[in-house]
Design a binder for these strands. Sequence first.
DNA 1: ACAATAGTGTCTGTGAGACAGTATCCC
DNA 2: GGGATACTGTCTCACAGACACTATTGT
Lengths: 237, 237
Amino acid sequence: MTPPLPAKRPLTTVDIAIFSIRDGRLCVLLVKRPSGKDEPYPGRWALPGGFVDLENDKSLEDCAVRKLREKTGVASPYLEQLGSWGDAKRDPRGWSATHVYLALIAGPEVKPEAGGNAPEADWFPVADSGVAGRLAFDHKDLLAAALARIRAKVEYTSLPVHLVDEPFTLTELQRAYEIVMGRPVNKAAFRKRILDAGIVESTGEFRGGQARPAELFRHARAAERLAYFPRTFSPRP
Amino acid sequence: MTPPLPAKRPLTTVDIAIFSIRDGRLCVLLVKRPSGKDEPYPGRWALPGGFVDLENDKSLEDCAVRKLREKTGVASPYLEQLGSWGDAKRDPRGWSATHVYLALIAGPEVKPEAGGNAPEADWFPVADSGVAGRLAFDHKDLLAAALARIRAKVEYTSLPVHLVDEPFTLTELQRAYEIVMGRPVNKAAFRKRILDAGIVESTGEFRGGQARPAELFRHARAAERLAYFPRTFSPRP
DNA sequence: ACAATAGTGTCTGTGAGACAGTATCCC
DNA sequence: GGGATACTGTCTCACAGACACTATTGT
């Protein structure tokens, strides 16, 4: 006897919370929902994402990478899965489940493309647990979860190295930490922490401003994976 | 114009990695795959789980709670989402996505039920990154991820409080930590860490053996959420 | 008294914070 | 020299580990 496969299956999507630092603020990339009739949440801002395409997506992560590249042109960013959300009500079109990824990219190379039939896209600064406007679906919750994740991890990992462009100075990296953490950190302690972890390596070059030039660093091999520090910054809230 | 919903949708399941301590070892609950014709991996052991039932499951978490209660009778265990896995190949029946949950339960109340038409179920001790036999689907990977998660969290959270029955002594709680960590911890440091965190509270009772009676504790309110300690146990491997 | 387990006091080590001090650029 | 930013030395503090010590039971 052949066991029956479920005829009714959830709508299945992948959404991505893509973060970057713009003008000294942590920002998330949002796209505008299409305004066609019967479209849910027409014109609302939402996390980029869409249905999994069983013909072309080999896996959920493939799907996330593809959508990320479409939106930002970035090929290999920091990407981790955040989790999944699924229930009967979150999409008015029916029972739906979304697999949510979190991506970090370094600044300038990305200009959201609104050309062609691509949806309008823009960077929004995040404050507290989200952005100013209302988002489509339950994306407010997804965004809050993504923010909680990176704000937790910044305390004990090297995660912000993926938010700075190479080469970078330690002061720039420290700024990235501070922007994500929302509070200043001690310079001497910060430098020891980062250098001891071996996640950055000197390029040997220096960048001069109108003061003493700062040593330039790049990601070390070890930066591919997050480094876990033996202690968090303190105090933890 | 109405945008088309995808006609092809992934098979969608929920799987749960349920851990408990049996005979001083960390164990995971596995169920035997049915042996019907056309069943994938007939007779293999697998994590308990199954298709999401769009009619009866209001959400993924509801589905996980239901399956957990069916297998163990435990109503409100520690439950957290581990993540989701989805690709074209992991289930021979087609493109499938599974939402994986991790549960911890305290010992004795649970006897896996093999009666009726419920599948055979049993506890398997885990070593290193999994169990001895081969598992169905990609459940070896899911189990390894679940183990990695709890082994990471035991280093800096109060997670093992969910593996001990109330009331418990601090020595019993320490044993639970040691079983999950796979190494001994210092008694004095352990007690300070736990007591300072406020995750346990004294019952005022004592349990006598053939030596000095030990103070009995229960979970404090704060134990509902995990407590995060300011430092990990050291050394981290 | 002795075995056994519960619980504590004290010292050391490590890494973060505070903060002032030195170093090196441009003007 | 002075302003600006980069970098470091030194002290303190908090908390984990080591380990020996005391405490309280049953036999």
